[in-house]
């Protein structure tokens, strides 16, 4: 087994750290390639390392010009998950599972996203709560054991995961919204956790303001960041904007995922954030998945995005 001075191993770890710090966040390589690296015996020796996948904005039921075949592109993404040489620990889905919160859309999503046989930890997007009863269908399906509108936390191999809901009771003129009850729960949830606990927070709408004119932010997101400030490693994973935007602030890495359904324009580059039509042959470069590798030590988590066009 190679030791720490083995140049090939050092190179791999440096490369992954580089990806994780956000210097390189586009086209950092495919999930299969990334997990191929993790499958390398040298890297596998890293104690307790594991990976999980983020899938987002599947919008089951979307069939407009930007992608008339959104179900097919989700199937392609799920096909990539099933083909991974190393099985991820689980998936998180950061919302907008469905386009219109219809029962048959939830059914299709559960069946398809369940195919790889991984646990899936969901948070809702605003498109998942627009049934006649304001989210009853979502909570009936995914609300068991969760608090309030569906927030919760869990632990995996020493990493603390927190799923937040910022798409309920949105205020006129406002952005995403968490509310006092959820923030109080979060403060309590984090209480007593050592500062060294790696934290992963996931929610649908970005927790930091990317572009307020399009509602791309969370009104009370700063209060979450205040609660997370003392932790040495914090990763914030969001969806909603159907493109990758990343920033690093202190110990916090923020990252948004691609959709599997349709692209949206870069902030401010179009009259509205509506679905963006790109040439058919380019569509798959705008859709994809995110893989996160957790390694223990002082390094940030390595986030790798892959598009449906990657081999």
């Amino acid at each position: 087994m190679p030791n720490n001075d083995d140049p090939s191993r050092r190179k791999v770890l440096e490369c992954m750290t580089w990806a994780g710090t956000g210097v390189l966040w586009t086209f950092a390589g495919g999930v299969p390639k990334s997990l191929g690296l993790l499958g390398d015996p040298a890297v596998a020796a890293e104690a307790s390392a594991f990976t999980f996948l983020q899938i987002s904005d599947s919008h089951i039921g979307f069939n407009k010009a930007a992608n008339p075949h959104a179900l097919d592109t989700l199937k392609e993404a799920i096909g990539k998950v099933k083909a991974l040489p190393v099985k991820p620990a689980f998936m998180i889905h950061t919302g907008d599972i469905t386009h219109l919160s219809l029962p048959e859309q939830f059914d299709t999503a559960a069946q398809l996203i369940g195919e790889p046989g991984l646990d899936v930890h969901y948070v809702p997007g605003e498109h998942d709560l627009i049934d006649a009863n304001n989210g009853k269908l979502y909570l009936d399906r995914y609300g068991a054991g969760k608090k309030g509108a569906g927030w919760y936390s869990f632990d995996h191999n020493g990493v603390h995961f927190v799923g937040l809901v910022n798409v309920v009771n949105l205020k006129a003129g406002g952005l995403g919204y968490l509310g006092a009850e959820q923030l109080a729960w979060l403060a309590d949830d984090l209480k007593g956790k050592p500062d060294s606990t790696p934290i992963v927070v996931f929610a649908h709408i970005p927790l930091w303001t990317i572009y307020a004119d399009w509602g791309w932010g969370t009104d009370d997101g700063a209060q979450v960041l205040q609660l997370l400030r003392r932790f040495g490693s914090v990763t914030v994973l969001n969806g909603h904007i159907h493109q990758i935007i990343q920033k690093v602030e202190g110990n916090v890495t923020f990252h948004t995922a691609r959709s599997t359904a349709f692209p949206q324009p870069a902030p401010g580059t179009a009259p509205s954030p509506g679905p963006m039509k790109v040439p058919e042959e380019q569509l798959r470069r705008f859709l994809g998945l995110t893989s996160v590798a957790v390694k223990f030590g002082a390094q940030p988590l390595a986030i790798t995005d892959t598009t449906l066009a990657d081999g």
């Binding site: 605003e126 205020k171 006129a172 003129g173 406002g174 952005l175 509602g215």
Partner: peptide
Amino acid sequence: FPYFCTIHPHMR
């Protein structure tokens, strides 16, 4: 009667 979009609340 001010109104807004409950899905995209920046729309008023």
